[in-house]
Design a protein around this nucleic acid. Structure first.
Lengths: 230, 230
DNA sequence: GACTTTATACCTACGCTGTAGATCTCGACA
DNA sequence: TGTCGAGATCTACAGCGTAGGTATAAAGTC
């Protein structure tokens, strides 16, 4: 019960000014780390500059010494997630290498599902995503694919990845996956008048994300493979 | 210059209570229509209950007689967009019919690009999306595709659609499309150290969304077609 | 050592947000 | 005519992002 504080007081009881040398100082990385932890726990829409500051036991305005604004924090979170993509193996068939990048990307997003939309739903201004991008094109170019076509293929594949991962992290339309898990009033697909829907309804009700991902990835990569010369 | 009002006053100068018979009354549809118009003009992140009310010349709290909360408004916008998908032709090859649904979906989203994320980035609790869904599966089932596989194909295709449209409406990672258009500090892909990137950089700089969409759609639908029996 | 500069922390305050709760006023039904 | 309830307004609150100001100690300069 020791000392009692007004509960809203940050921490070092109002000591102002530059912190003395020994003390743990703030930094952009610490801010973003705290923000990410908060997102993991409470969700993207629940974070606020004030809560981040509270977690760091610091005044909210102090954050602005290390971060431009809230948007900058979200950018930082996105960078952190992208940095979590493992470097893919440089050997193997082109197909295997592309699968490696795709799976690495997926794994990085699923490591922080609630934060994933920072990557999937924003323009990323950072260069953190360039390495995986390069790793994804390289196999195509190595296989003799003309650059222009490689870009087409890349965009198609990225489209699939983004859309599919959005569904996995429940940030996207999903029709019937996981009843009761979705927000609010998830109605039970009364479908009725639409015969083709009643035919597939039972299969819509289940969704093994991993299997679904692999199915689609195979579809897309096979299609891309077929456009390669030779 | 007639009558001057404090500018923040809604409209009928504070008349309280149930509106007299002749006057135009509020309704859920009117609220959502106004909200959609506002999103079209100012963007999703700029709308607020207060601005919607102002546009309707009504007190902010009046909206709550017709709408549960702000989230409900966004749901309504999503429904409105989905309702804009034209009914696809019921004849033609399976391929043509699926293309029809996909293009209709795209057209409906591009009709309100700034509102599109309400559809693309939320779980939709409404049945407004069921008709297009049914229209998309029907060709597969008609072609003898087993229901389970049809669902896999559907999910893969939807993933591609969502991801690609997110990029088109600039709500998603896009690497280098349309320089200067993107938010804030769109850096010029200094890439440098990554040779495979410098090889494709010029092609990353241009992006014809329509062509890109058709390329990917062809890729995906061809792949799906190949899994059909016969 | 003394003086200045600079980085970093805190504090106050503003305008905006979503919305709970109370109040008023009319049309509709008894 | 009396009562009721739907639908509008008004007031108010807690929370948000952040502009602007102030204090303090470290680092740089002589």
């Amino acid at each position: 019960m020791g000392h009692t504080e007004p509960v809203t007081t940050p921490a070092p009881k109002g000591r102002r000014g530059r912190p003395p040398r020994g003390s743990a100082t703030l930094s952009r990385d610490r801010v973003i780390e705290a923000a990410l932890a908060l997102v993991d726990e409470e969700g993207l829409d629940q974070i606020s500059m004030r809560k981040i500051a509270q977690r760091l036991r610091v005044d909210p305005m102090s954050l602005y010494n290390h971060v431009a604004d809230k948007d900058d924090v979200l950018d930082g979170i996105a960078e952190a997630l992208l940095a979590g993509i493992p470097a893919p193996p440089a050997d193997g068939t082109p197909r295997e290498r592309m699968e490696g990048v795709a799976r690495g990307f997926r794994a990085a997003m699923l490591a922080h599902p609630r934060a994933a939309p920072t990557v999937l739903t924003r323009q990323i201004g950072s260069s953190a995503g360039l390495a995986p991008l390069a790793a994804a094109v390289a196999p195509l170019l190595d296989a003799g694919c003309p650059p222009e076509q490689a870009v087409h293929a890349l965009r198609a594949a990225l489209g699939f990845l983004v859309g599919t991962l959005m569904r996995e992290v429940e940030a996207s339309p999903s029709f019937g996956t996981d009843p009761a898990a979705g927000g609010r009033r998830r109605r039970t697909l009364e479908a009725a008048a639409l015969p083709s829907l009643t035919a597939i309804a039972p299969h819509l009700a289940v969704c093994d994300h991993e299997a679904e991902f692999e199915y689609g990835l195979d579809l897309v990569l096979t299609a891309i493979e077929r456009t390669l010369p030779g």
